[in-house]
Every structure is written in C-alpha cells, then in structure tokens.
C-alpha cells in the first residue's frame, strides 16, 4: 500500500499562545478510513486544515503524495490542493447556484486560463458530474438551487463536489455534526462506500464515538494537541477513551452520571 500522507513531529502554535498541535506524527495509507476523535479544542480541525495548508504549521513536516506541503506556494500549492477533497460541517455550497454548478466547482482547479475564470466546463465534466449525482441518488435535483435542499442533500452535494476533484485524499471536518441521525447514517455510508470504491484515503473528524468505531479502519485519538491513541477501533478500550476525553465513557453519553458542569467547561 502506498503512503499518501505523513506527519512528522508536526507542531502548531497560534499567535495567541495556544499550542494546537504538539509533536504529532502519523501516516495514512491509500484506501484507509481514518477517524480523528477528541474533545473540542484538541486540535482535530488544525490537523485537517494543515494538510492542505489552510493553516500553516509552525514546526515539523507534512508530506502529501511525496511532496512537502510547507514548501508549496502559488500554482504548485493549487496543484497539490486539487488532490485533496474537503467536506465541511456547514456544507459551504454556493446556495444561489444550481446543484450541478456546485458539483462542477470541483473541476475549477483543473481548468486553466479563461475557461477556469469564467467556469466554462467541458461536456465530459458535466457528464461525470451528472453520473456522480446519480450515484448519490440526487439526479432529480441537478437543476435545483442548492438553497432548496435539506441538510443531508446539501452534504451529498458537498461529497460530489469533493469527488469531482478526483482526489487521492478526502478530508471531512465533522461532516455529520449538523445532521439528523438518519441523514448522518446515509452520509457516513456514502463516504465509506464511495472512497472504498475509488481507493481514496479518507480522514474524518468526528464527535460521535460510536460512529467512529463503526466505520473506521483506524482511529486516531487526540487530547490537548497530542496523539494519545493510534490504532484499529477494536483496541479503543475504555481506558484509552478516558485518556482522550478526560472523563469516563459513561459521561460521554448524554444523560450520563458525570458532572455536567465540569465536562462542558473542559470541552468548551
């Protein structure tokens, strides 16, 4: 299996003095489905955003598909970025445009010159976008405004846009945090099946422990910017969970016996 991504002793200090990441090292192979879990503020988003240089790191090396991310600039960075698809909690679509136009945005990174600037997509790209929407069960919404869709449907458009990029790696920043349980299951199923079919490595930030255990081939546990667990879901024992979240597993369930006040203060 090919290595897609490699973190070597990566650290990130924000100007306000927060140490978001401390000496983080891990690797991701082709076709893996990795979940990153940890309380809010543990550095999950920082990890995802440093991979495509939305956030520059302070120390260490990130290697993406054989290239050092920190050395890429301008056009080279854009070339590297199109290998990485990204899915967001708030979908981040352009709501005044059609579903099809939003999906086609995934191709803009490949289009040079005036074609790219004015969004003149090729017929092949359009066909591929329609096929993709078919696969996601969204074919009847092709020409609807993105603002008319439900949350789960919007996220499916988000997935289609990311897959249109033909990525080697898919980053999902809490993709189901704004969805109801049934839509959340649909989205997670789609993410797993579509990435498996195309052999795309997938990194998902999750707040739902049970979802992470069910879908992942590997789980990375973060606590205060440090990797405290990296292994298959079976090895995620109650001990480890307690180390990641600083509280026992029962307290993680809503309505648990824990001291609610203390928990929310820690996590906020």
């Amino acid at each position: 299996m090919d290595k897609i991504l490699k973190f070597e002793n990566v650290s990130k200090h924000y100007p306000n003095g927060v140490h978001a990441l401390k000496n983080v090292s891990f690797e991701v192979n082709e076709g893996e489905f990795v979940s990153i879990i940890g309380p809010s503020g543990s550095g999950k988003s920082t990890i995802l955003r440093s991979i495509n240089k939305l956030i520059p790191i302070s120390d260490g090396n990130i290697t993406l598909d054989g290239l050092l991310v920190s050395q890429q600039k301008g056009k080279e960075l854009r070339k590297l970025r199109r290998k990485v698809g990204m899915i967001f909690q708030n979908y981040n679509l352009v709501y005044s445009l059609s579903v099809l136009q939003n999906v086609l945005h995934g191709r803009l990174g490949y289009m040079d010159g005036l074609k790219g600037i004015f969004g003149l997509y090729s017929e092949e790209d359009k066909k591929e976008a329609i096929n993709l929407l078919n696969e996601l069960g969204m074919e009847q919404f092709c020409y609807n405004r993105a603002s008319d869709l439900s949350g789960g449907q919007k996220q499916r458009v988000g997935i289609a846009r990311a897959i249109m990029q033909n990525p080697k790696l898919l980053l999902c920043d809490e993709p189901i945090a704004s969805l109801d349980p049934s839509s959340a299951k649909t989205i997670m199923d789609l993410l797993r099946d579509m990435t498996r079919k195309r052999n795309i490595a997938c990194i998902v930030n999750l707040h739902q422990l049970d979802v992470a255990i069910k879908y992942s081939t590997r789980i990375i546990g973060l606590s205060k910017g440090e990797v405290v667990f990296d292994g298959p879901p079976e090895k995620l024992t109650d001990d480890v969970i307690e180390r990641i979240y600083n509280t026992s597993r029962e307290n993680l369930m809503i309505g648990g016996a824990g001291n609610d006040k203390k928990d929310s203060a820690d996590c906020a």
Binding site: N52, L54, L77, R78, K79, L80, R81, R82, V84, G85, M86, F88, N90, N92, L93, V94, H105, G106, L108, G109, Y110, G116, I117, G158, R161, Q165
Partner: peptide, 12 residues
C-alpha cells in the same frame, strides 16, 4: 467558509 471550500479545490 464558502470561499475556503473552493480554495481547497485548487481554484485560483
């Protein structure tokens, strides 16, 4: 966030 979503596709 919307701009970010397109930025990560490598769009100018």
């Amino acid at each position: 966030e919307t701009m970010e979503a397109l930025e990560v596709t490598g769009t100018s």
